[in-house]
Nucleic acid binder design. Structure first.
Lengths: 336, 336
DNA sequence: TACCTTAAGTTAAACGTTTAACTATCAGTA
DNA sequence: TACTGATAGTTAAACGTTTAACTTAAGGTA
């Protein structure tokens, strides 16, 4: 491994001072003659000089890196968000460090510590609910919340979806289609997002004069297996229903599988409504009716918002932007 | 934003030199009395001191960060790899920067440049084939290849699967089950991986005395849509087959969907064999028979290998480890 | 002539660590 | 007594930038 080429080398070779090279690199070349400018630039290219960002960051206190804290990249909802965030970030010259928390507070705390140490310029955060508010105070850097809201006020922005309204619209659609007994298989209830979806389900029922009963609501996790298992639970309790609203598409897919195995047809016997519109929702049998979230855009907008704040360094103004993106009911064949 | 607490602050407060604080932080405290040790440690906790990794890295030339270059985190094959890599990395105190190349050389080159600048300690790389070999020379840091092999010799390790043998085993299984006309819907052929899978398909046919004919091979991309489209192409050419080997599970899922729409039943009329065993392969109808890759383990082992090399700094020894992990034929219901 | 302005730089401190080399004190020992 | 060794530190250079403040020479102006 040969030694890194430094500004010092370039400066010596070009017969100028280090400061001159630095200024040329950073386009602060108002006071540099065209001649030296090109001479230095040529040397830089020839010697393959790359700036040492450690040294730079030490002075500027900017790392051009952001953190992305999510529960689990393995859940198909998140890769698209991540992709959107990364595309935007890299467009602006930022890199992104990924952190999977599995919704475990301990892991989350640990990542917060690490990102602080690595001095990322900001964080995009899909946080786990319990006790999260307190932790945000540890940060001296801007945080943008994504997907999951929280009351925390030391957060500079949010990119969300109106989960309550979206669920309400979805469940209302089920009602309009003539479904009478609509169950809800929820995911983990740890997040505000989950609570909002439940509230939307409830409001839709109420506003259409239908009974809201907790025995029709099952709470679990956002995994296919849970959708599959929840159906068994309903059966044990010999509860009948003609439609199921699912906390996300994975749950819906698991539920469909379980129903199929019992000879119950979707949508003939039971209608199924998902949430998210993940990539494979259109490939299942039947293709899933679901509430689409603009995942890629969420990631993109979150990164955009965060980077704007980082670069504007608007301290006092602290606009606390709250971006609410539109959902869309995508009607396919899992509902009649 | 208040100023960072530095070693200097701690040192002054404790009445010792900066070096002493540094040594205590790094557990090089052979020459430090228990008294000062605890006094300093308490101050560190009280003041909330966090080391500045920029400054540290500037001296040590280690960033405790690795890069992960993959084509697309949105392809469900990669999140598990990523997750494995991240879990291992974080266990060893490393963070990981994600880079999606979309298999575009330009993006790939750009990320290589950025990772070099950010001075990551190493890179895990699922590279895009064309011209890739040349680029590796740009690196001064260790690279381990994952999923996709290459002839490049300035690579310190590889974590792979024997794609040829795996495909051969899979297709042989189809033959044993009595399938006579086996088509192959391949993904992008840009990688060695893809070429090996094709070779395995071919060898299986040959060794069982069956004809190998390119008209039964369609080359496209690793997306569901392509699986769907490929079926239309076969139909246009009025080619008949009784089984299809698919380059990955996404392709298989698209193909099944297309077949279903044409009233062709899987596995009754046509058997389908996938590759990867992504999370949803067990949730499709019918559940997919597929060749399982140990994705999480691949990521984990790659990170482990890389970090070992980074920390051992074994320069001359350069063992160039080549880890070949086992695949497994998972028989579900898409084949008879 | 004396002064001012501008262009084209240079100087040197600062950023916060790590680490090799050095020092000071004291107890033990021959 | 003089030396040795151990203990518990300290000193200062180095890492590679950025940047505010300064310099120097040339040309313009009154």
């Amino acid at each position: 491994m040969k030694r890194q080429v430094t500004m010092k080398d370039i400066a010596k070779e070009a017969g100028v001072s280090i400061a001159t090279v630095s200024m040329i690199c950073n386009n602060k070349d108002k006071n540099i003659s065209e001649a030296t400018r090109t001479r230095v630039l040529e040397l830089i290219a020839k010697q393959g000089y790359v700036p040492n960002v450690m040294a730079r960051s030490l002075v500027t206190k900017k790392t051009k890196t952001i953190g992305l804290i999510i529960p689990d990249i393995t859940n198909p909802f998140f890769p698209e968000i991540a992709r959107g965030a990364e595309d935007m970030a890299s467009k602006s010259g930022y890199s992104v460090i990924y952190c999977n928390t599995d919704d475990k507070i301990k892991r989350q705390d640990n990542y917060i510590k690490i990102l602080t140490e690595k001095m990322v310029d900001g964080i995009i955060f899909a946080h786990s609910a319990e006790k999260a508010e307190a932790d945000f105070n540890k940060f001296r850097i801007p945080i943008v919340l994504i997907d999951r809201d929280s009351k925390a006020d030391n957060v500079v922005g949010r990119v969300l979806v109106d989960n309550e309204a979206a669920s309400m619209a979805g469940v209302s659609y089920l009602i309009q289609q003539g479904y009478k007994k609509i169950a809800y298989i929820a995911g983990s209830m740890k997040t505000k997002t989950a609570q909002d979806r439940l509230a939307g389900y409830r409001r839709a029922l109420m506003e259409h004069g239908m009974p809201y009963d907790l025995k029709w609501v099952k709470k679990g996790s956002y995994r296919s297996q849970w959708g599959y298992d929840a159906i068994q639970e309903f059966e044990k309790e010999s509860l009948s229903f003609d439609a199921i609203f699912c906390g996300n598409d994975l749950i819906a897919i698991g539920a469909i599988k379980a129903l199929k195995e019992k000879g119950i047809y979707v949508p003939k016997d039971v209608g199924i409504l998902g949430f998210d519109d993940v990539y494979l929702a259109q490939m299942t049998t039947p293709p899933l009716t679901t509430i689409r979230q603009p995942k890629y855009e969420m990631g993109y907008r979150a990164a955009e918002l965060l980077i704007n704040i980082i670069e504007k360094e608007k301290k006092q103004e602290e606009k606390k932007e709250r971006i609410i993106l539109d959902t869309e009911l995508v009607i396919r064949q899992s509902t009649k």
